[in-house]
Design a protein around this nucleic acid. Structure first.
Length: 768
DNA sequence: CTCTCTACTTAGTAAATCCAGT
DNA sequence: ACTGGATTTACTAAGTAGAGAG
């Protein structure tokens, strides 16, 4: 059970997976509690013996280069020399690292100073609320990661210097500004001032189309195409083996987009029917191109990459209040056929090419406006607009031709802006811990509210205290809380795929006949990912739901009258800034925390001995991660190679087991002679028949193999990444790594490490 | 209020890269 | 050293939700 920090109530705070209501994620089949999971095959040796020789092994799999990176991320001092305070107007002044005296003020602080009268107070909470001990702990905790001595320093800390003109720093290691030591996230507000100075290199445009001249056939006859026509034909040819290309909607939309282009030059013989189109020659050409690319030598590839990097270098970084920050998506989206998810009515439409004239640049008032690149079409282009809006974080934007929605160019995930916002998100979610008891109590009462008919509205914000939701709103909140559903904003089904969330659930998505107090929901959620789970729910909710679906048609809304805005207004009564999505973050993170707190019980010594500490621990971490992913219904397509891979593993396991048997039989006596045999150099020999190895090594290998197999199968269609990136408070993971001496790069690959720099110095006993 | 606009987070998949087994 | 599968990153679609307009 999670210990409760500064909380009054002893309300049920258990994460969903620990409550009576069964974990929502998976299908009806009972989810194996982690407890049931990894049990190593019987280890014939005393664990201790096996454990002994393990550590070296484990160290080996820690690439030192990476470890170095980790260290950098954690300990990197703020670059003492900030870039020049006022770069001169040279269009790409962002690139070269410039020396300067000016100390960079953290953006949000500036923001606060600028607008918040509360700024003196803010100063006091310099240090993150939840980290009890002070600045020096930083160094301490860092050293946790160095316990395993960095023995062989393969590479000197050589920087991958001067990558392009970009200033020569690898992602995430040297922007220097430790904003997270100054702020606690609370100052990150929409509409607030985000920067004082902003300078950047604009955007990169995709290359113009180069015609290949390969024939297109219609009804058996070659139809010559202009470059413009060929471009679109080629887009389709490139996709013709995908599922999209086989869908009627896609074909129809594609033809509707393409035909008008064709008309311009068509004489009398219109290309009309999709079925008569033959793109095979073009497709063959694309294949060839791909093959040619593949055949390039290593040097050629490196050369090409170098050129590309050089061309983009000026866009890679932005200079914000004298901090150098990485830009995320500075490449303008190329034209193409729209790939909407699910049954999207617009799939196959032509997404138009974006020109400088379509783009609005946001840049500091005094800063140079980024140069409009030469697109190579012989025309002089200009930006559509240039603005200086310091209340937003986008550097450029344009309107997308498919849905008319705005696309933004923003900073990368490792930037301080994203980091602050991330920190604020998790602090908000932690704050919910303090209020969740009241909220749950309130919606429980709400469900029993007799004036069901009266109105389904949550409560008007005019009502100041004790908001009491009407039953429907109460049930909706219950589902958002316990099943981690999204709120479900309204959608336009003519223009978008038909997907729903909590408030937009329809009668046809709800099944109440699976048993008493069992709720089955089956619907398409975000990205048209199916949610299909049966959950034990409280009788009050069950009863209420029955009444909500009564006398309604399948297509009717279950929660008519309940809408996201009202729910969010209602949430505001309990906590500032509380909205429906916070519940997902809260539930995800608290689940991860709770699961990881069981590590000692769940990862047996035997297991650790057999598989190695880090391996066993990470296997458990992944199980915890998986539980969160299932809670949030994060899915992925089963990898095509899955069945194959499993079969292979089974085969391998069998082989190993047979070998083990042999080994035992053969070496029964002497094998054990020396208690700790000096580790022979890894017998990596070519050829098949493995030289006999110590029994314990073989056993270890088998258990690892089996653990891997189990893991792979259980996660074949669970996407772990999404929760790791967006829902799990990284400090939970970092603290766990510190407690169990797991290298942080095991759960967090390079980019996540960079993204979560702000979380690295957390105390080992951090609690979500 | 309701509806639309805006900005930002969250999401799965395609492409690129890595890496382990031959 | 190669290669194919696994892992990681890039890409961009699809959500949420606050703010502003009507």
């Amino acid at each position: 059970m999670v210990r409760i920090r500064d909380d009054d109530s002893s309300e049920d705070e258990a994460p969903p997976s620990e409550r009576t209501s069964q974990p929502p994620a998976a299908a009806p089949e009972a989810e194996p509690e982690p407890a049931a999971a990894p049990e190593p095959a019987a280890a014939p040796l005393p664990p201790a013996a096996a454990a002994e020789d393990d550590s070296s092994d484990e160290d080996d799999d820690v690439p030192l280069s990476k470890r170095k990176a980790v260290e950098n991320v954690i300990t990197a001092k703020p670059q003492p020399a900030a870039p020049s305070p006022k770069p001169k107007a040279n269009g790409n002044g962002v690139a070269p690292p410039k020396p300067a005296a000016a100390k960079a003020p953290a953006a949000p602080k500036a923001a606060k100073a600028a607008k918040a009268p509360a700024s003196p107070k803010a100063k006091e909470k310099k240090k993150p609320k939840y980290s009890e001990s002070s600045a020096d702990d930083d160094a301490d905790s860092d050293s946790d990661y160095d316990k395993k001595p960095a023995k062989k320093q393969k590479k000197a800390p050589a920087k991958p210097s001067a990558k392009g003109g970009g200033g020569g720093d690898d992602a995430g290691t040297s922007y220097g500004d430790r904003w997270y030591e100054e702020v606690d996230g609370s100052e990150w507000k929409r509409g607030g001032v985000k920067w004082k100075t902003l300078e950047h290199g604009g955007v990169m445009f995709p290359p113009l189309y180069t015609p290949h001249g390969k024939p297109f056939y219609y009804d058996g006859a070659a139809v010559p195409l202009t470059a413009e026509q060929e471009e679109v034909a080629t887009m389709f040819a490139a996709m013709r083996e995908t599922d999209y290309a086989k869908k009627e909607t896609f074909q129809k939309n594609f033809m509707e987009a393409w035909r008008p282009l064709l008309k311009k030059t068509d004489e009398g013989k219109p290309v009309k029917k999709f079925d008569k189109c033959d793109f095979s020659a073009i497709a063959a050409h694309l294949e060839e191109e791909k093959a040619r690319k593949k055949e390039m030598t290593k040097e050629q590839k490196a050369e090409a990459k170098k050129e590309k990097d050089a061309a983009e270098a000026h866009c890679v970084f932005a200079l914000i209040d004298s901090r150098k920050e990485k830009v995320g998506n500075f490449r303008v989206e190329p034209p193409g056929l729209f790939r909407g998810r699910g049954e999207h009515p617009k799939m196959g439409k032509l997404k138009a090419r974006i020109w400088p004239e379509d783009i609005t640049i946001n840049v500091g008032e005094g800063a140079p406006v980024p140069a409009v690149p030469d697109l190579g079409d012989g025309k002089r282009h200009r930006w559509g607009d240039v603005v200086h809006d310091n209340t937003v974080t986008w550097l450029a934007k344009w309107m997308d031709s498919i849905n008319g929605d705005v696309k933004y160019v923003m900073l990368a995930a490792n930037s301080s802006w994203k980091g602050m916002s991330d920190l604020a998100k998790y602090e908000k979610a932690r704050e919910l811990k303090k209020h969740i008891g009241r909220i749950r109590a309130d919606y429980m009462k709400g469900m029993k509210n007799p004036d069901m008919e009266a109105q389904q509205k949550a409560s008007s914000s005019a009502r100041r205290r004790a908001p009491r939701p009407a039953p429907p709103a109460a049930v909706a909140v219950y589902l958002i809380d316990r099943l981690a559903l999204r709120v479900g904003n309204e959608k336009n089904t003519d223009e978008e795929a038909d997907t729903v969330g909590c408030t937009s659930l329809r009668v046809e998505h709800v099944f109440l006949d699976e048993g008493d107090n069992k709720l089955r929901l089956k619907f398409l959620g975000k990205d048209s990912i199916e949610y299909d789970a049966t959950t034990d729910i409280i009788p009050e909710a069950y009863k209420a739901l029955k009444s909500f679906v009564k006398k309604k048609k399948p297509g009717d809304q279950v929660f008519d009258q309940v809408n996201p805005t009202e729910l969010n207004d209602y949430f505001k009564h309990f906590m500032e800034g509380l909205s429906a999505k916070v519940f997902r973050t809260y539930n995800a993170s608290i689940t991860l925390d709770a699961e990881l707190r069981k590590t000692e019980q769940m990862v047996s010594a035997r297991q650790r001995a057999a598989e190695g500490d880090v391996v066993a621990l990470m296997a458990y971490y992944n199980i915890a991660n998986k539980n969160v992913a299932e809670l949030c219904n994060h899915q992925r397509a089963t990898p095509a190679s899955h069945a194959n891979a499993i079969a292979k593993m089974d085969e391998k396991i069998e082989t190993l087991k047979a070998e083990l048997k042999e080994l035992k039989k053969a070496g029964s006596g002497k094998e054990r002679a020396s208690p700790s045999p000096p580790r022979p150099p890894r017998p990596t020999r070519p050829g098949g028949t493995p030289r006999p190895r110590p029994v314990e090594a073989m056993t270890k290998r088998i258990s690892k193999m089996e653990a891997d197999r189990r893991n792979k199968d259980e996660t074949k269609n669970v996407s772990l990444g999404t929760s790791k990136i967006n829902y799990n408070d990284p400090r939970v993971t970092v603290a766990w790594c510190k407690r169990f001496e797991v290298p942080i790069h095991r759960p967090f690959p390079k980019t996540l490490l960079a993204k979560f720099t702000w979380a690295m110095s957390v105390e080992p006993d951090y609690e979500f």
